[in-house]
Simulated scan of single mutants.
Amino acid sequence: MSWLDTLNTLGVQVDERGHCQVSKPTGASSSTTITPLTHLGLFDVVGPDAEKFLQGQLSCDIAQVSAGRSLLGAHCNIKGSMISLSRLMPAEGGFWLRTERQILDAAMANLKKYMIFSKAETQDRSDTIVGLGIAGEQASELLQAAGFNVPRETEAFSLSESSVLIKTPGDRFELWLPLEKATALLPELQKSATLSDTNLWLSEEIRYGIPSLSSDTLETFIPQMVNLQTFDGVSFTKGCYTGQEVVTRLQHRGKLNRPMYRLRFNADSAPAAGTKINSADRAGVGTLVSAAMDPDLNNSGELLAVMLKTSFDDATATLTLEGSDQPLQRLDLPYELDAELFERKTM
């Protein structure tokens, strides 16, 4: 039985975007939730040169992944613009990279272009390795009771029988495991947790200011524009990688005009990634990164957007989504951005 068939038997429907929707409440009535991460996919990079190859392609320090941290890392083009964004974790013989399912094929293809002279190879593992998002104050206890060694620090991971458990910001975990194990585990977890949909998981990602990349925003942002350095998703000490010159120049000699911010919107559905944000006197002051409906409020949600800092900071300026007259509400990020990023450096 496929993963989608298993989810269907539990009342979960998956749409063309890979987003799952729970048709009726299933599992225990609990504040701990389980979200099938069907909007995400996973591919591997394995072989004797896997670490060396990825170190020369991605923005994060792959050596830190080997040492025990699961990091976000961007693959950039030579202009420094992101062509994929993945979370890295160790796997037998190399690494697993999980990314938005809609850009997975492109992410693999772009890496393959540089793989020809390396002893490394890549394969889509999305049909055999699946993900669960477990969240809530009792999430760690639930996972421990299920036999997992639960990491305590954010970005730490634990390995167990071909499974990887990652602690993400907040009381949340990503669990990636073989299909047959997920099929057996999910009904057991449901005895103490509630099955939830993709929107709930995405809303938490946004509240923690975690960036994503979609087919509509490929080659639109450089890593610092989505605050990737905040998550150690950019290394400025490891050496060269594709696009590194542009990324490093901005950090040490340039000025960041458009970082990523968090805002609230009013609408009956979440706007699409890539949607423009306008001010009263200027169009295109921002570009939407991701959005999700508020699980607790009707006709409202939160979004992350890369925006002109001057437009966001001007509290008197009304911001709206393209095609809407509803004003956006500025919200705080859960982390501080380095003020030096917004200052012009002098030699």
Score class of each variant (00 low, 15 high):
Leu7Lys: 06
Val12Asn: 07
Val14Leu: 11
Gly18Val: 02
Cys20Arg: 07
Gly27Pro: 07
Ala28Thr: 06
Ser29Phe: 12
Asp44Trp: 01
Ala50Cys: 06
Leu54His: 05
Ala67Glu: 14
Ala74Trp: 10
Cys76Phe: 07
Asn77Trp: 08
Lys79Gly: 08
Leu85Glu: 02
Leu88Asp: 00
Phe95Asn: 00
Trp96Leu: 07
Gln102Thr: 00
Asn110His: 06
Leu111Arg: 08
Thr122Phe: 08
Gln123Asp: 04
Val130Asp: 02
Ala135Asp: 05
Ala139Asn: 10
Leu143Tyr: 07
Gln144Thr: 12
Ala145Trp: 00
Pro151Asn: 07
Arg152Ser: 14
Arg152Leu: 15
Glu153Asp: 09
Thr154Val: 15
Thr154Lys: 11
Ala156Ser: 12
Glu174Ala: 11
Thr183Gln: 15
Gln190Asn: 14
Ser196Ala: 15
Thr198Lys: 06
Glu205Phe: 02
Ser212Ile: 07
Ser212Cys: 13
Asp216Ala: 15
Gln229Gly: 03
Gly233Gln: 04
Phe236Pro: 03
Thr242Ala: 11
Gly243Tyr: 06
Val246Pro: 02
Gln251Ile: 01
Gly254Asp: 04
Lys255Asn: 08
Ser269Met: 10
Ala270Leu: 11
Thr275Val: 08
Thr275Arg: 09
Asn278Gln: 08
Gly284Cys: 04
Thr287Lys: 02
Leu288Lys: 01
Leu288Arg: 02
Ala291Asp: 04
Asp296Glu: 12
Asp296Ala: 13
Leu297Arg: 14
Asn298Met: 14
Glu302Pro: 05
Ala305Arg: 02
Ala305Ile: 02
Lys309Pro: 07
Asp314Glu: 15
Asp325Gly: 11
Lys345Pro: 05
Met347Ala: 15
